[in-house]
């Protein structure tokens, strides 16, 4: 089998130009209408890099000052490396058309203290084109899975000079993933709590491949190496890892225990005075949630992680407590 297949017009023999993703072509010599059979690829665009090294480094330094990162990061942080790459994304448009019907229940109390539940019928049309981007390779530890910005000047001018990450995931998997996500988003947008009827049609309208410029910055803090990524079009920091600060961790748990504990106490006190159990439970639950959130920051705030990183998801308080209890049993 030969590796290369010449693309010549079957009518006049002239060399033809194929745009990826298009099945219908025109021969530029004889004007014949042509059809590309089989896999014609996908439309690909690349956005022009609009940032330079200095701008990216400055954006990273500004990012150091934001949030609960180590206070001395701007003094101790040292920028070491900074380079642009092109990351591949699948960009899909999915049309959703349908109806989701059902009802919402609202409970209210009348003057005699009896509670009534009212059913409010709802019929919601869902008609929308949902646009998603999804990274087309394994992002590793870059912390980027989708694009926040789609736009910029389309140009392949920098394509040779900037290293390009290759697409290694299937475009059809991406289309199917977008269909599922579009249905979920349509249901969320409809906002019908109790569904009695649903008829929704989902049609993938288009898929294209976007090469998006991203700058990778590596910096050190003491002996540790951290990183950040900067959007090559907008210049905003997309993701990053940074050292945390024990002071913020301690303040968080001090605030969380005091506020959470007092809210729980207030719930118990007020709840004991009325015969409605929801106030009592509500107060305790709100208090525990505040405690849980601040505990997570206290426990794991020694590293601040922004973006779509794998290890960010793992920080689940229940899992943490589960591991701890499991450890005690053994």
């Amino acid at each position: 089998m030969s590796l290369s297949v010449g693309l010549n017009c079957p009518a006049c023999g002239g060399a033809i130009k194929v745009n990826e993703g298009e099945h219908v072509l025109n021969c530029q010599y004889c004007g014949s209408t042509l059809w590309a059979e089989g896999d014609a690829g996908v439309l690909t665009v690349a956005y022009k890099n609009m940032q330079d090294r200095d701008g990216v480094l400055r954006a990273t330094e500004q990012w150091w000052r934001k949030g609960l990162k180590a206070r001395d990061l701007r003094k101790k942080g040292r920028l070491l490396e900074c380079y642009p790459i092109y990351l591949p994304f699948w960009s899909t448009v999915t049309r959703v058309a349908g109806w989701i019907c059902g009802y919402e229940e609202r409970t209210y109390q009348d003057r005699d203290g009896h509670s009534h539940t009212e059913r409010i019928p709802k019929e919601e049309m869902v008609l929308n084109d949902y646009n998603y981007t999804n990274i087309a390779c394994d992002p590793g530890d870059l912390g980027i899975k989708r694009l926040r910005n789609i736009g910029g000047e389309a140009s392949f001018a920098d394509f040779e000079s900037i290293p390009t990450f290759e697409s290694t995931t299937s475009k059809d998997d991406s289309v199917n993933g977008s269909k599922e996500k579009a249905l979920q988003d349509a249901r969320r947008d409809a906002g019908v709590p109790h569904v009695t009827f649903e008829k929704v049609t989902i049609i993938p309208k288009s898929i294209s491949q976007i090469y998006y410029p991203v700058w990778v910055v590596r910096y050190s803090y003491g002996e540790r190496m951290y990183m950040a990524t900067v959007d090559g079009v907008t210049g905003n920091v997309l993701s990053g890892r940074a050292p945390g600060d024990p002071l913020y961790q301690s303040l968080a748990v001090t605030g969380g225990t005091s506020l959470g504990g007092l809210i729980a106490a207030a719930g118990l006190i007020v709840g004991a005075g009325s015969d409605d159990g929801t106030i009592m439970f509500g107060g305790v639950i709100v208090g525990l949630v505040i405690l849980g959130v601040t505990y997570m920051f206290f426990r794991h705030g020694s590293e601040i992680i922004e973006g779509d990183f794998e290890d960010k998801k793992m920080k689940n308080p229940l899992k943490d407590i589960g591991i701890e209890l499991g450890g005690l049993r053994i």
């Binding site: 748990v253 225990t257 959470g260 504990g261 207030a266 118990l268 006190i269 525990l288 206290f298």
Partner: peptide
């Protein structure tokens, strides 16, 4: 730290 702190504030609140 988190657990003892929470319980202490709860009791003090009551």
């Amino acid at each position: 730290v988190a657990g003892i702190g929470f319980v202490a504030f709860l009791v003090e609140g009551l």
